[in-house]
Design a protein around this nucleic acid. Structure first.
Lengths: 115, 115
DNA sequence: CTAGGACTTGAACTAATGGTGAAGTCAATG
DNA sequence: CATTGACTTCACCATTAGTTCAAGTCCTAG
């Protein structure tokens, strides 16, 4: 039951039309087709894209985001969005821990450069 | 007064010879040349590369690392390395804050997706 | 019914990122 | 001297995230 066109999803999510098509090709979102072969998206498409943009800020690649969003069923319920939220949070915290580890290595910098 | 060859710096820093040449091209390290046009590095070259590798873990690009290392004079003193250490630490902490900010945006996810 | 804006495809293109590889040259040693 | 390992340059590779283009098709308002 998709009703939204590429342009509508683009405006609703803040990305360009070419990006919307790109995200569909990459499997971040799915689309039904009209008789004339045009894409029609469900209302959650723009939501998925907004989540994807946040995930990019966390440092996930489009491929990783595909896998993340694959867990989200069509017609997602609040609990489903929550699950996504949790996994994204965990990933961000993992990356924060990696940065702290790098900081520790910097802290032991005497060993990096004892000229 | 460089005395180290590409291979020696490579072994001393744990990167490949091609990477050492790449880093010189990018301006992370500098080299004198022999009469036969070969590179000869100072003793601090391997140090600079070790710092660069840590900076990469922090998420800096080679271009940003060039700018970071540009602050390091030739014949650097302990205080110079310390300054680098401080800037790198600050940068890592800035990135950690960005991740926390992304987490906050995830936390307010009700606004991302109020279907 | 028709005009024209929105849509379709696929491939080529961009631009940054971080190197690697091939082909040929140099230098130190036995 | 000749070998052999290290060195040289420059072109190329692979990935990432899209954008752009051309040529054509759809769909909706008037």
């Amino acid at each position: 039951m998709g009703t939204l066109t590429v342009g509508e999803v683009a405006r609703g999510s803040g990305v360009s039309g070419s990006a919307v098509r790109f995200y569909e090709r990459q499997g971040l979102i799915t689309a039904a087709r009209t008789g004339g072969n045009q894409r029609r998206f469900d209302a959650d498409a723009a939501c998925r894209i907004r989540v994807a943009r946040v995930a990019q800020r966390v440092g996930l690649t489009v491929n990783e985001i595909r896998d993340l969003l694959a867990a989200l069923p069509s017609g997602p319920q609040p609990a489903d969005w929550q699950g996504l939220h949790d996994r994204l949070t965990a990933e961000a915290e993992r990356r924060i821990r990696d940065l702290h580890a790098a900081l520790d290595d910097i802290g032991s910098g005497r060993r990096l450069c004892d000229l």
